[in-house]
Simulated assay, not measured.
Amino acid sequence: MIRLFHVSDLHFGCADEAALDWFAGAVAAERPDAVAVTGDLTMRARAAEFEAAARWLESLDVPMTIEPGNHDLPWNPISRLLRPYRRFRRLERHLEKPLDLPGLWLVPLKTTARAQWRHNWSWGVVSRRSLDAALTLLHRRPPDAVAVIAAHHPLVDRDDIRSRGRTLRGQEALAQLAAAGAGAVLSGHVHDPFDAEIEAGGRAIRVIGAGTLSQRTRASRPSFNMLTIDGGRIETVPRTMG
Rank of each mutant, 00 (worst) to 15 (best):
T111P: 02
M43F: 06
F88P: 09
R87K: 13
S223K: 11
D144G: 07
I2L: 09
L57W: 07
A115N: 08
L73E: 09
R129P: 01
V146A: 03
G188P: 02
L186A: 08
I208W: 11
H191D: 09
G209Q: 07
R80W: 07
R162P: 02
R93C: 04
A133D: 14
D230R: 11
V7N: 04
V185L: 09
D40Q: 04
F5L: 08
R86W: 05
L186N: 07
G103N: 08
P142C: 07
A134I: 10
D160T: 13
T236W: 01
A45E: 06
L174T: 05
G170N: 11
A48N: 12
A179M: 09
F50Y: 09
I198F: 10
M43E: 15
L99A: 08
D230P: 02
G124K: 03
A151T: 15
R158G: 11
R83A: 12
S127M: 04
R86A: 15
D21H: 13
E199M: 14
R93H: 11
P32V: 09
D230V: 05
A196T: 14
Q116W: 01
R93K: 15
D72F: 02
L135N: 11
T167R: 09
A204T: 14
I198A: 10
W75Y: 13
W75H: 11
R140N: 12
A53E: 10
E49T: 02
A26K: 11
N120I: 04
G181P: 01
P238Y: 10
T136M: 10
M1Y: 12
R31P: 03
I234T: 02
D33P: 01
G211I: 00
T136W: 10
W22E: 01
D160Q: 13
A175P: 12
D230L: 11
P32T: 12
I229K: 00
M1G: 14
L99T: 10
V207C: 14
D33M: 02
R87P: 02
E58M: 12
P98Y: 13
